[in-house]
């Protein structure tokens, strides 16, 4: 799984895969948050419409979720975009996407008429009403999220720049290879 990294493959992967995926996923999350934060009332109504939480007994939870989710999207999206705590941000976004998929499936199988409000009032690829399109879109977005959790934000990231003496595993592997030493690729030691 963790084959030795060369400067070329490491830089190429970072420039061609990790950076674009971070920009895509982080940008989408920030766009979603940008549309939701000024419209918390609408987002709360959308969460209520999903029917996951009972409005009679869990109205406070719905309101808390309506405030926290957009801010989480904004912070995680921004961190992923700049590559700071990139793995954590990608993991958070991945978990959020899984939560959204569960909610969407609840609406679909519960035959509920609900608006997605995934990107606030804006629609990306799919329409506003919940359907399989949103499930597939979120499943597709899970791929880059999972990849970034696995591989990290890459060299073109603040994580890499700030690592300094406390170098990331990738940096350690690269420097060890450059000097010709044997690299311990055991991920548990990373």
């Amino acid at each position: 799984m963790n084959k030795p990294l060369t400067p070329l493959t490491s830089h190429t992967e970072s420039a061609l895969l990790q950076l674009p995926l971070r920009l895509l996923l982080g940008g989408l999350m920030m766009y979603a948050a940008y549309n939701k934060i000024p419209a918390i009332q609408s987002f709360a109504e959308a969460i209520k419409g999903f029917g996951v939480l009972d409005v009679e007994s869990h109205s406070e939870l719905i309101i808390i979720a309506a405030f926290v989710i957009p801010w989480f999207e904004l912070i995680a999206g921004l961190l992923l975009l700049i590559g700071l705590r990139g793995r954590s941000a990608a993991l958070g976004i991945g978990l959020l996407l899984i939560m959204f998929i569960a909610g969407l499936l609840n609406v679909i199988f519960g035959d509920i008429d609900a608006d997605c409000s995934c990107f606030g009032d804006a629609n990306i690829v799919c329409g506003s009403s919940v359907g399989w399109c949103q499930v597939i879109r979120n499943l597709i977005l899970l791929i880059p999220a999972g990849y970034l959790v696995w591989r990290g934000p890459g060299r073109l990231s603040l994580d890499h720049i700030l690592s300094g003496s406390n170098q990331s595993p990738d940096t350690h592997a690269y420097q060890a290879q450059s000097s010709g030493s044997v690299v311990d690729q055991d991920p548990s030691r990373a």
Binding site: F67, V68, W71, I75, R85, S88
Partner: peptide, 13 residues
């Protein structure tokens, strides 16, 4: 890191 992000989100929220 994830817990930090969640905490920050709660703070801003």
């Amino acid at each position: 890191g994830l817990l930090t992000i969640i905490g920050a989100a709660f703070l801003f929220a």
